[in-house]
Design a binder for these strands. Sequence first.
DNA 1: ATTCTCATGTAAGTCGTTACATGATTTG
DNA 2: CAAATCATGTAACGACTTACATGAGAAT
Lengths: 213, 213
Amino acid sequence: MSTPDQKLTSTSYAILGMVQMLGTCTTYELGKAMQGSFDYFWPRARSLIYAEVKRLGVLGLLEARKDSVGKRPRTTYSSTPAGKEALAAWLTTPPRTFTLEFEGLLRVYLAPFGTRDDLLQALQTVAGQADTMLHVGAAFKRSYLEGTSPFMDQIHVRALLNDFLVNYADLVRQWSERSIASVRGWEDLTPEGKLEAALGTFTNLPIQDSPSG
Amino acid sequence: MSTPDQKLTSTSYAILGMVQMLGTCTTYELGKAMQGSFDYFWPRARSLIYAEVKRLGVLGLLEARKDSVGKRPRTTYSSTPAGKEALAAWLTTPPRTFTLEFEGLLRVYLAPFGTRDDLLQALQTVAGQADTMLHVGAAFKRSYLEGTSPFMDQIHVRALLNDFLVNYADLVRQWSERSIASVRGWEDLTPEGKLEAALGTFTNLPIQDSPSG
DNA sequence: ATTCTCATGTAAGTCGTTACATGATTTG
DNA sequence: CAAATCATGTAACGACTTACATGAGAAT
């Protein structure tokens, strides 16, 4: 009963969950943990977290304890029964759709208004970004296989999560590499002589070009 | 020279590019085109486009012509030399990093605070969303293979684009399906008896758990 | 002792969304 | 001709970001 859910955002629940996971934490620790865990699928700026925990405290979904370090005040948060209830209630609702924001694809779409080299550089930047992500994934993999990760007891769900994330990074990496290879084979961005390969790419997409309607 | 780039966002350039692609268009047509093309990698609300073309008009990057339909006024836009220059200049800069916002993964991470069935439902929702995306991809594929797409002359770059998008949707679909299969095999969300499979998942990730360095 | 990094926030601003209002056009 | 849908915006609001300010602790 009650579930007093005012206007909470998904970020609110992300915070509620992370605090519950950590038990008790300062906002800084919370921020670090969120950055380390959520950055690739729910990225948020630090300052937002400071604002949000405050709000969740007022709503009674987090317990805020003031202490201080030196003569500087700070706040430490922990979960409340109401907070746990709210989180559990949210978890029963369907997730909003996943959205991608991929400027690199915008560059591909608009490539004909720039140069071939612009496109190549954009794709190389993307490849580098994917590579970084793969390194992070590799570190996670190592920490779980070696058993050095905190939250080893969560390994069964974290496996699902990393399964997605690593395959996702790998997809971006591979896509950017084969795209670079394609573009390298071009002299410019005009359509001339590029139809055949394009049709081949479409044909090989892992999908049925099945009945409309 | 000049490149008077005030504070333009990536969305500004997306608009600049789409208008240049269309030649001349009403804001409504522009919005439709953007929705149809960018929705999966650069989603933006209609109303933002109305606001943005107006601004781009003031900046001289788009030409705005007022006409009317019945006694209702409307504005039609087309590209200007300055606009084309600005777009070309932007295309030389490196793209910002791709970001994902995937509430489904948040649900996976926080799953232990809810029930097994919550998690299953969330994953099924995701599978459905990926499926929808695959249908859109299939339609694109068909239109290009049949040669019925407008902008057939862009097929070489669109092939790169759809290569990513379809494989991405396919990844989400397949991931959600194998995750559902995993969770179906569980009786609850406790760690008991789930270690082996999790370790296997990590081991099989397409990545080296290579030297830290 | 100074400097650099860690830690704890606040303030201002913006990009973008949801909701609304209303005219025009098609459809039943 | 009434209802639904297409078309053309505006207004209000909010979630999130960037930039700033500053204390504490570590390093040199």
